[in-house]
Design a protein around this nucleic acid. Structure first.
Lengths: 192, 192
DNA sequence: ATATGATGCGTACATCTGTACATAGCGCGA
DNA sequence: TCGCGCTATGTACAGATGTACGCATCATAT
């Protein structure tokens, strides 16, 4: 781990940039990348630093602990996902368009990279044990439910929310994921 | 970590039992306990050994690697859960009883200890990264779907399976879990 | 230009991890 | 009863991890 002593360059020459506002943000993004790729279990200070191309010491400088990094990362992920949810449903003008928006959202989840899906599941399991992360999850769920309540009554919104959750999760782990048509069938059947 | 050198008892006196058939089984059970309590991330050889009250060396003797322990543990969990599913649905004589069985299963999941639920989510996230565990998950899902297909057509079974998944997961992470009545409402609405 | 205080970083360290392996001890056949 | 061989265990070890901290370095004011 020790640098080769024959390296002629002084330490600072190798890493020129010092003043780097927004580095904290990049670190959080890097953390999300690492979580998606290696899981929470494989997320370490060193790995995040490597991905973000910053020195290890920068981690402890910007975050009090690894747990803080995880909490910030998951908060960002949840907020970003909720925003997509909000916007997609907010643009719907009637119930039919809302159904269409839901189908689009679910299909997008499944067809897109596994990135967001994996992050969500990782967040779930982390939330099961960490109260701070549980609050993040609950805020996220409350927000998506509220978005649905713009077009459906409270009970329907809650049940539909759960159905979406199940369709996405179940389908993602299956050998043959559901097609958008199958998603549409399930959602419309439920809302009929 | 080293034992106090002034312990007068020889090593063998402290741990009398040597011949212990079925120890492997107990270790797998202990592993499930540890996974449920500390998560896969907190599951180590030493922790399992501590819970099962066996020496560390016993772990590497009975299992080639930690991954093997996890695989066996999750396999056992999935099989046990699937058996419950099978039995509960198998005893139903008509579709109405099958619906009742489903509601009972879901409610049981929510009202019982978090034990099984946490294990399931841990299995999901582990399966996302480990091919061997993914096979376990898929076998489990296939089996529960087949049980549903005894009473519903294939499409309905698949969608219902996903709905159940969503209801359980969503509800478990929520601040106010759904009541059995709410579960019944959602399931019957879907099957109407 | 230069002193100076805040900012950022390299490195060390104690701890914990999975795993290997030399033996110790017991069951079992003679 | 007595050995022998397989089962089981204590221990060692290399590697990785989170975190602390002293010091280098830069922005800024003079």
């Amino acid at each position: 781990m020790k640098p080769p002593p024959d390296d002629p360059r002084p330490a600072t020459a190798r890493r020129p940039r010092r003043h780097d506002p927004g580095r904290r943000d990049r670190l959080i993004d890097a953390a999300l990348t690492v979580i998606a790729e290696r899981g929470v279990a494989g997320t370490t200070h060193r790995e995040i630093a490597r991905v973000a191309d910053v020195p290890l010491g920068s981690m402890t400088y910007h975050f009090a602990s690894l747990e803080e990094v995880l909490a910030e990362a998951f908060t960002r992920h949840a907020e970003s996902a909720a925003r997509v949810f909000d916007e997609c449903l907010g643009s719907a003008r009637d119930r039919t368009e809302a159904v269409e928006a839901v189908i689009t959202l679910v299909s997008g989840y499944l067809l897109g990279s596994q990135y967001d899906l994996v992050l969500s599941v990782e967040l779930y399991v982390a939330a099961a044990r960490n109260p701070a992360l549980r609050a993040v999850t609950q805020a996220w769920m409350a927000r998506s439910r509220r978005a649905l309540e713009r077009h459906f009554d409270a009970t329907t919104a809650r049940e539909l929310d759960a159905l979406i959750e199940g369709l996405v999760l179940h389908s993602a782990l299956s050998t043959d994921p559901m097609t958008p048509e199958q998603i549409r069938h399930a959602v419309e059947r439920f809302l009929r």
